[in-house]
Amino acid sequence: MKQWYLVQDVRWCHDCNNCLMSCKDEFVGNDWPGYTKPQPRHGHRWVNVLRRERGRYARNDYIYLATTCQHCEDAPCEAAGKGAVYRREDGIVMIDQEKAKGNKDLVDSCPYGAIYYNEEEDVAQKCTMCSHLLDDPDWTPGVPRCVHSCPTESLKAFYIEPEEMEAMIESENLEVFHPEYGTKPHVFYKNLFMFTKNFVAGGVTKNKNGVDDCVENATAILKDAKGNIVEVQKTNFFGDFKFDGLDDGDYVLELNVEGEEKKIDVKIEGKSLNLDYIAF
């Protein structure tokens, strides 16, 4: 049957935190019987925007990843819940607020850190994907509050058959965060490499009549340690190149300007690199 899925295009998140604030607006001080107790005003981030800076000025970027309960098919919290955590037929994972009372182990059971403990209510809580709204036929937006409030449409929700989702995953190159957890999340990301991987960037200049000028259309080739070509680029108007989505490892950068060549050894070790300007 149809399932609910969340998809974020990392490229379009600008850290406005509308998703977080709309979640707060919906749940802080509001009791939704059968779904969840009121969310505390402080301490809980059912939608948590992670931040990462890559590179070094002026070739740097800031990437934001909206994380929430991943609504996993193989949810570790379900086993830790001792009957208090269950998956609805539409794929949304819920915590029964009565059965879960006093069970603080639920917080540590989530590898994504998406479960919080409400000391006042003595119960674990998390994102419900606004299921109380999705179950309401009068809720005309038809999507969770976080999705409805996203100004760039970085966040989207889909209620589709699993086969349709599989097709979308393939066509849009969607990925899950921390696939090594093996939990089969219902939250997917486009352009996830911008948060999880690194880049090497730089610029090319050539001295002409005593002045260093940017070189447009210089050839930049990145090869791996075995000599295989990773990608070939042409520098832009500012002489810049940028190879993104790189895993840690050794690379060789080959630059060609009007027949003149340079080779530069590059090592990616957990961070992106700005090679500054390379003069010819």
Rank of each mutant, 00 (worst) to 15 (best):
D31H: 15
H44T: 14
H186V: 00
Y57A: 11
P179R: 11
F237T: 15
Y159A: 00
G270M: 03
E78V: 13
H148F: 09
P185F: 01
N191G: 01
W139Y: 13
A114Y: 01
M168L: 15
D25I: 09
A80L: 05
E254F: 07
A201T: 07
Y5T: 00
E121W: 05
I264N: 10
N228V: 08
D213T: 15
H44Y: 12
L255V: 09
K24D: 02
M21Q: 12
A167N: 14
N17W: 09
N209G: 10
D15M: 03
P33A: 08
V147R: 01
C23E: 00
D105M: 10
G239S: 09
E269N: 14
V49M: 12
D31S: 13
R41I: 11
A157Y: 02
V85T: 08
D224Q: 12
A157R: 04
K104D: 01
C19W: 03
N118V: 05
T205H: 07
I169H: 09
V107R: 01
D248T: 09
R56M: 08
D138T: 14
C16D: 12
G102S: 06
H44A: 13
K223P: 04
Q97M: 12
A66E: 06
G210R: 12
C13K: 03
F158N: 06
T36L: 05
L253A: 05
L65E: 03
I160C: 03
D25A: 14
L275R: 09
F177N: 05
F193C: 04
A84F: 04
Q70M: 15
Y5D: 01
E172K: 15
P33K: 08
E166R: 11
D15K: 11
A201Q: 10
E258P: 02
V143P: 00
K223R: 15
N209H: 14
I63L: 07
A58D: 15
R88G: 06
T152P: 02
N173A: 13
S149M: 11
D135Q: 11
R88C: 00
T205L: 12
C110S: 06
S131H: 10
C16I: 06
N60I: 05
C16W: 03
C146A: 13
T67N: 06
P179I: 09
K126L: 02
H178W: 12
V85Y: 02
Y251M: 08
D240Y: 09
G83V: 07
D105L: 10
E89V: 06
Y62T: 13
P38D: 04
H148D: 13
E166K: 14
D224L: 07
G249D: 12
G259H: 08
I264A: 05
V266I: 14
I63S: 03
L174T: 03
N209V: 10
C13H: 01
K267W: 10
V204S: 05
Q70R: 14
V7G: 00
N236L: 08
C110F: 02
E26H: 13
Q125I: 15
P40Y: 00
K24N: 07
F27C: 03
V10K: 06
A220Q: 06
G227C: 10
G113T: 05
L246F: 03
A218K: 03
N18H: 11
P144Q: 05
A167H: 11
I92C: 02
P38K: 05
P144D: 07
I169V: 15
G55N: 10
K104M: 06
G29I: 10
G182T: 08
H178F: 10
V176S: 11
E161W: 10
N191A: 04
I268Q: 07
S272D: 04
R87S: 12
E161G: 04
E172P: 02
M21V: 11
